[in-house]
């Protein structure tokens, strides 16, 4: 199976023969993939086919059993290399908002901006709060906001450090249609502006169609680029 992108632009993400296991079971078996900078790619397939595992392997949250992962031409996993997740320059949105309960919304967003100066990080936080319509909630704690707001805050947090690659693991699950629309709008606007590459795991064909024309699909026991 070879799903190398035909696009000539330099890939921001390259996977070569990626193999992931859970115990004895092989979840991903020899995935090859190039994703060019600024591209939006949806990953779709039935439950248990390895969508989340793929994202976690790219992020370095799981350790692949074989193959290599390169981000922006830098080998981050495999062939003797291992780069810690926070040094890979990516963002991750989980299935749950996973907001830290002891921090306010603003503090959650600011957490990843430790490399910036104080002024720049405040400015970035304010920008994101405004962009995601969270300005009024900046001093609230996660248990004081709604599910949709928490989801927006979670996306804002992951985009705060300007990641070149944003991995989203079913981020819109459990949101109603209008909230989902809002959250997607915010996400796509911000991604467009920052030229962020998106990898979105989703079950929802409509959501996939809004994000990207191309999808990585799991069909009849194998992965295909559609």
């Amino acid at each position: 199976m070879n799903m190398v992108n035909e696009n000539e632009a330099a890939p921001v993400l390259s996977l070569r023969n990626l193999v992931c296991r859970r115990g004895e079971r092989i979840i991903l078996d020899g995935i090859n993939l190039d994703v060019p900078a600024g591209a939006h790619l949806c990953i779709r397939g039935p439950s248990g086919c390895g969508k989340s595992t793929l994202l976690r392997a790219i992020a370095g949250l799981d350790i692949p059993a074989g193959g290599t992962v390169s981000i922006r031409d830098r080998l981050v996993s495999g062939a003797g290399a291992w780069v810690q997740p926070h040094l890979r320059g990516l963002g991750f949105v989980f299935q749950t908002p996973a907001l830290w309960p002891h921090m306010t919304i603003a503090e959650n967003i600011r957490f990843g901006l430790h490399g910036m100066g104080k002024g720049a990080s405040s400015e970035r936080t304010d920008h994101l709060l405004k962009r995601f319509s969270l300005s009024d909630l900046r001093n609230r704690h996660p248990d004081e906001i709604s599910g949709g707001e928490a989801r927006r805050a979670s996306i804002a947090r992951s985009m705060a450090p300007h990641p070149a690659l944003l991995l989203l693991d079913e981020p819109m699950t459990h949101l109603d249609e209008s909230l989902k629309e809002d959250a997607l709008d915010f996400l796509l606007e911000e991604a467009e502006e920052a030229h962020t590459t998106l990898l979105l795991v989703t079950h929802d064909a409509g959501e996939a169609a809004r994000v990207s024309a191309r999808s990585l699909l799991f069909q009849e026991g194998g992965w295909v680029l559609a």
């Binding site: 949250l61 991750f92 989980f94 996973a98 830290w100 957490f111 430790h114 992951s158 705060a160």
Partner: peptide, 8 residues
């Protein structure tokens, strides 16, 4: 993990 992707 949400922290691990951005911080040591």
């Amino acid at each position: 993990e949400a922290s691990r992707v951005t911080a040591p």
